[in-house]
Amino acid sequence: MEPYEIIEHTADVGLRANGATLKELFQNAARGMFAIISGDERHDDVTPGTRRTIQIKKEVDALEELLVDWLSELLYIFNKEKILFKIFRVHELNNDGIKGDAYGERMTPGGTAARTEIKAVTFHGLTIQENMRGFSCNIIFDV
């Protein structure tokens, strides 16, 4: 099972994320989102030096809401601090919120440039599905 794959969408960009566990699904969705942003799908085994902790406390009925919050928070930090995240660790995930770390490198002028501007993470058709191998979902980004 691939951690994620980029899927067709006429106007925007879609991502199918998979994970053996929900935490892994959230991690892989973040990896996929940053692969779209950077245009670089290589997986880096070396943990980059800049870390940001994401903690969202919110009571939700559906984990899809937390998935959008988690990805939106990472996107916000990327836009603000220009950190291209590569590695993600979700420590806590339940209907009361999410806590995780993201590791990446700050973009420098003349260095790696972002390829695609993701405007937002949408809820369009977003349903986390449980299957034989774990969990999957399709996420559409507005680009």
Partner: peptide
């Protein structure tokens, strides 16, 4: 980015408010 953020803030709060107003739509977006 200003407009993206305004929309993003409100889509999230309205997803929660759907229940409050008992509105059924086939897509959360």
């Amino acid at each position: 980015g200003f407009g993206y953020q305004v929309c993003d803030d409100y889509v999230k709060s309205m997803v929660t408010a759907l229940r409050k107003y008992n509105i059924n739509v086939p897509d959360r977006q």
